[in-house]
Design a protein around this nucleic acid. Structure first.
Lengths: 420, 420
DNA sequence: GCAATTAAGTTCAATGATCAAAGAAAAAAA
DNA sequence: TTTTTTTCTTTGATCATTGAACTTAATTGC
């Protein structure tokens, strides 16, 4: 007993070898700025209390940030009660920077222009298609989107300070390389470097599901949660995860593939080649597989899967029992997939989004009830489920987040330099 | 298009509302101390380079920590090469504190005494049983364990500075309350407060799987990973998750229940009442269900499930094909469960531990190969799997981690106070 | 209408953590 | 023995932050 030794100790000592991120804290100016942005408006005294800093520091920091044009005072008339000197609200200067967020997909591209506060100033879409394209073609499409935004918002391209793009695929964020993407002909495409040749501003790319998750963290219901999950149901079924207020990306940047978790040993064949994947029961090809049996298609037989699915949904809504069963079955598998997320991760909230959310049969009360049964134990609180009405713009909005975030870090750092 | 608004914005502003943990960084003294502990030994100059602080700061911090009795210089003779003045290694003073880690279970309790560096000085076990007991009985057993450790290590109880306990159940860490535990008669037992009545030292309690995960993070293969998962196969199947060097506990403190993820829609009945849980194929009752069919039991019929399982394993090892099939089938379901973890979290490493790891049929090459097939895509790197030889002491060792960690924080903070 | 009260914001000397630079110490190499 | 190299220490300087006193601007009560 005395000679117990931990089987595979790595070297001497104990404790984690890698410094946790908490090692280097954000500077006071950045914290202050972020707090004001998060609250929309906040007085110096409010921020001082929240960040537990002295009033003097608040004054100093504020004057620096105002001098750098990042914050501004707001003349706030509305004041019902309270004695003392009225507080002066501060807000982020919206025009301090402009940022573009883009969602690329095979159906249509989507882009928004936001100001420094994240407000959407313009939004445009561009038809896309299923064909794989070259890097140059994609860059042309990106350029078109930016041009359209510039026109709509009546600004100049030079006013834009950064761009974020979410792509359906696998991304090396560090180097701005698209490792694999259904839209591109080639693998390992140097998107960010190529972008830098055309535009004089930084480009941030990431997986599109991650961008949507960031949208929820920055603008949506995730804002007041430290941990939550986002499930996207589109062509495939993806997942985004926020842990400790931070997007978790997994170790290989592949994205979290809820669609390829197995819900049935030796189950239905999935297009990934495996059997029993959730997607094999929830993907469009899975649903349309049985359309011919449920519906008398006639000439509709040759439509695209998407159209077939819409047709099936119409039928189900108008009472076709066979069509309903197809959705019902898919819903049951979805319930299993979601319950697995709850069991494995125990989040306080799962947000479901994506194009397919319009097929509300998937989220019938009975489906959610089923999920609840599958996760409920004596002790577990039920996990909240939020279903987002589908909107492409949200993805594009989320794509702007890394750009806004990096830009704020940089501008606040510049402010620290100059006010020394 | 212009009137796009995020559907459910929470108040004004944007960005996460809760400050991420990075807000308040660890003090330099604490960082310095942690670095020395993590490396076992380190010279001032090494630490200064690693933490990117000046040599002057290193000297100042070191002298404070030495004065407080937390660090000490080591006369290091071994020095092969190098010019200049030889560096003076520093190490944590092992005797600066003593800590006890305890794992409670229905088979046997287990406890270790460690010094301040985490070295195990003594280890003891105490038989347990399946009966539910009162808080007082459990406290008596804890007292016995501590007494035995004190005797073995020839120290006094007063020398112990903190205790950590891992229990199989659901725990409210904050308040030291055991919400539910298979060992206790009652729910919501105030273990830590009751402990405080008997002993004059802090008690830290947590779920046992979390404690094992901490053992891997502090002493095991997880030390050099920022993210990894630990899967425990015992009576049930549990999981621990480390994200960004920090143990992720889930939002309800229920523990991450890999055992109750569904691997088969409408599958085998689980003792939780659901169908298709992984545990329904991997738990002891699942394996022994078919023992009667595979083996001619005779009088062995009335043995405990554990013994039956050992019998089955012996049979399989000596070539019984039917017995082998039982393990083989369980192994296949385990492969599905693990592949789901990989798909959902994409960790670089999964460590498998727990009592059942001795049934190596579960981890036959074909099982791991199957798992690999189920997760492999064109782009995903295979996830490393490490199988820990089972050892109760590791769990107890991990139970000491929160105690050691909290103690270091406190002692270093005291050091900062005194050296002002 | 006028003091008293309350709270926000400002100013400024004091603090203290950290650093840069210079120097002392201890070894190997020339 | 001298030079080089690296570690460690010392010291004065710097800069972010605080605490406390002060100013400003409002409400409340007489």
């Amino acid at each position: 007993m005395m000679n117990y030794m931990y089987p595979s100790a790595i070297g001497a000592g104990c404790g984690p070898l890698l410094q946790s991120g908490a090692a280097k804290a954000a500077s006071l100016r950045l914290q202050f700025f972020q707090h004001v942005r998060a609250n929309g408006r906040a007085a110096r005294a409010d921020v001082a209390r929240a960040l537990k800093i002295s009033a003097g520091s608040a004054t100093a920091v504020t004057s620096d940030l105002i001098a750098s044009g990042l914050l501004q005072e707001v003349s706030e008339q509305t004041r019902e009660t309270g004695r003392g000197r009225p507080s002066v609200a501060l807000e982020v200067v919206p025009t301090a920077a402009y940022v573009v967020g883009i969602k690329l997909s095979s159906r249509r591209h989507c882009a928004v222009l936001t100001d420094f506060v994240g407000n959407v100033l313009a939004g445009v879409t561009l038809p896309s298609n299923n064909r794989r394209r070259s890097l140059q073609e994609l860059l042309d499409q990106i350029t078109s989107l930016i041009d359209m935004l510039v026109q709509q918002a009546e600004i100049s391209v030079d006013d834009i300070d950064a761009v974020g793009i979410g792509v359906p695929g696998i991304v090396d964020m560090e180097n701005g390389v698209v490792r694999w993407c259904s839209l591109l002909q080639d693998d390992d495409v140097d998107l960010a470097p190529a972008f830098a040749v055309r535009f004089d501003m930084p480009l941030f790319i990431d997986n599109d599901t991650n961008m949507l998750t960031l949208a929820e963290l920055w603008f949506g219901e995730g804002r007041d949660k430290t941990d939550f999950a986002v499930v996207t149901i589109e062509n495939g079924v993806g997942m985004g995860l926020v842990v400790n207020n931070t997007l978790y990306r997994g170790s290989h940047g592949v994205g979290l593939e809820l669609g390829h978790t197995k819900v049935q040993m030796d189950g239905a064949l999935c297009r990934c080649g495996q059997r029993g994947c959730l997607e094999a029961y929830l993907g469009d090809y899975a649903l349309t597989r049985e359309v011919g049996v449920a519906l008398d298609l006639g000439e509709a037989r040759h439509r695209t899967p998407e159209d077939l699915l819409d047709l099936l949904f119409e039928e189900a809504k108008s009472g076709n029992a066979a069509a309903k069963t197809i959705f019902r079955r898919a819903g049951r598998y979805l319930a299993v997939g979601l319950s697995n997320v709850v069991q494995l991760f125990d989040p306080p909230l799962i947000i479901i989004s994506g194009e397919r959310t319009r097929y509300d049969y998937l989220f019938a009360d009975e489906v959610l009830a089923e999920m609840k049964t599958m996760t409920l134990s004596d002790v577990r609180q039920p996990c909240a489920i939020a279903i987002r009405p589908w909107d492409d713009m949200v993805w594009a909005h989320g794509a702007a987040v890394p750009a806004i975030s990096a830009l704020s870090d940089k501008l606040v750092a510049d402010c620290e330099m100059s006010n020394t």
